[in-house]
Design a protein around this nucleic acid. Structure first.
Lengths: 99, 99
DNA sequence: ATTATATATCGGCTTTATTCGATATGTCAA
DNA sequence: TTGACATATCGAATAAAGCCGATATATAAT
């Protein structure tokens, strides 16, 4: 997780996903709001905001998921990424006591 | 700080320095106990525990200091490194609210 | 002064991360 | 079933991190 967070873009993504409505206002074109915000934000929207190439962002999201920071759901042709709050909480708990 | 912590050895060092008496029991040969533990642990002792070369450990300690995790004091020919508790606390506070 | 010890810095090699464009895969719509 | 779109994966080039031995510097002891 430290490795995953030791990159500005990836840290930004994690923070953006804390408030998806705020940082991805035009999100939700493909799906009803309730569903899409709950399910996370799709790769394309994150890519646009991150201003990196599609492959880079896809790679980042994948590694953040492997690190446990994110989880993903697929709705049709879109993959929605959202925070893995439980794992993040465990991480911050670890930090509180062990760091 | 994420970068500095995204390495097992450096994370270990930070944790060891939380309880120097426990992890560096034979430390304090050169100086009275009160002084040396307060002042931190010398590079040689950290190096021995970390099982990396002298230059690597010196480099690690220097980068951890630059990141704000550690601070150092020089007593004669020894450099003592200890945790920068204030900066670490600020960091964990940031994590609590922003991550 | 010379020598020994502790730490820092330098140079260089190896490994890993970053990042992209191109291509593959998977899904939807016509 | 073909074409369009979203995402994932591949391959490769460049940058950064990891790491060490050798050397420099600073201090202490003789």
């Amino acid at each position: 997780m430290f490795k995953a967070l030791s990159n500005k873009t990836r840290l930004n993504i994690l923070q953006w996903l804390k408030e998806p409505e705020k940082h991805f206002p035009k999100q939700g074109a493909h799906l009803p709001k309730e569903v899409s915000y709950k399910g996370g934000v799709c790769v394309g929207d994150i890519q646009e905001k991150a201003e990196a190439s599609q492959s880079t962002v896809s790679h980042y999201l994948n590694m953040m998921q492997k690190a446990g920071l994110l989880e993903s759901v697929r709705y049709g042709q879109w993959t929605y990424y959202r925070r893995n709050e439980e794992a993040i909480h465990q991480f911050t708990e670890f930090l509180k006591t062990e760091i």
